[in-house]
């Protein structure tokens, strides 16, 4: 009975204009794999839908001459998987995005939607944080950039200002000896939501970790950057003591709830387990020894 208007602008300016003008009654539509589900369930009832998939910048994957990447916020997971270079540079980010849903969902689901949906369990977010990705945001007051970890504000909430749209993710160039990985714990083997999700990005030189970032999901109201875990890894040869210290840092960072998906004790313990397993994969990919 309620009318919904639908717009599919070709430019960002139009999109931001319409989005801002609707003053909170509008929703951005990327793949719609969250939005349409929420509309069906009656939890969101937008008066205006602004589809951003017709905006070139938001569906592009651009590789910079220095090896960095800029990914449009609305690029579907399947498109990213088909890109020649991206998975080589960022296998962890790619595997995190490709874990979202199923084949069908992959044809639509975007990293921008995953981030802006604000779920602490979004799979791509810990990997993006580990990757030190920056988002470019455009709103009525122009453009700004912010680190991915600054976007989530709590379950279902972001720090985007009214009328702001996430335009793209920028991933930095990779130093030699770098790689990343993402693992999640789900009770099923697929079609499930992370009970804990963990992304690690590492740079190794001569077997010593020279740089590390750890993103941890589903254990707190927002996805976390665990700096203490990174500190424990940097300078180490990934010996047991360093791994245990990093795992302990992940456990300490947890601030989970008891809910139908897992207990506090379970989530906390698993965060440490996943840290060790994810680091091992990232290190192997980095060619570390």
């Amino acid at each position: 009975m309620t009318d919904i208007r639908y717009l599919a602008p070709q430019t960002l300016d139009e999109a931001v204009g319409a989005f801002a003008a609707a003053q909170g009654a509008a929703r951005i539509l990327a793949g719609g794999t969250d939005l349409l589900v929420q509309m069906r369930a009656g939890t969101v009832k937008p008066g205006l839908i602004v589809d951003i998939k017709k905006i070139a910048e938001m569906t592009e994957i651009a590789e910079a001459p220095d090896g960095g990447f800029r990914i449009g916020a609305a690029v579907p997971g399947a498109t990213l998987a088909e890109h020649r270079g991206f998975g080589k540079a960022w296998p962890g980010v790619l595997e995190a995005i490709n874990l979202i849903g199923s084949k069908q969902v992959q044809g639509r689901a975007s990293p921008g939607g995953n981030l802006c949906n604000g779920s602490p369990a979004g799979d791509s977010v810990p990997a993006m944080i580990a990757a030190n990705a920056m988002v470019t945001v455009q709103g009525p007051e122009g453009r700004r950039t912010m680190p991915v970890e600054a976007v989530p504000a709590g379950p279902g909430r972001t720090n985007l200002k009214p009328g702001e749209i996430v335009v793209s993710f920028t991933l930095p160039p990779r130093a030699p000896g770098s790689s990343d990985a993402y693992l999640r714990m789900i009770p099923r083997t697929e079609m499930d939501i992370a009970v804990v999700g963990l992304g690690v990005s590492l740079t190794l030189q001569g077997g010593v970790v020279t740089a590390a970032r750890v993103g941890l999901g589903a254990v707190a109201p927002t996805v976390l950057l665990v700096e203490d875990a990174a500190k424990a890894l940097v300078g180490s040869r990934l010996d047991d003591a360093a791994l245990e210290a990093a795992a302990a840092a992940c456990r300490a960072a947890c601030n989970p709830i008891n809910d139908k998906r897992g207990t506090i004790a379970y989530r906390t313990k698993v965060a440490g387990v996943l840290l060790k397993r994810t680091v091992a994969i990232a290190a192997a990919r980095a060619g570390g020894n």
Partner: peptide, 16 residues
């Protein structure tokens, strides 16, 4: 009932 749907009512999927 806290899990009135197939996401949190965990029936096995094919790959399980």
């Amino acid at each position: 009932l806290d899990n009135a749907g197939f996401l949190d009512y965990r029936m096995p999927v094919c790959s399980d």
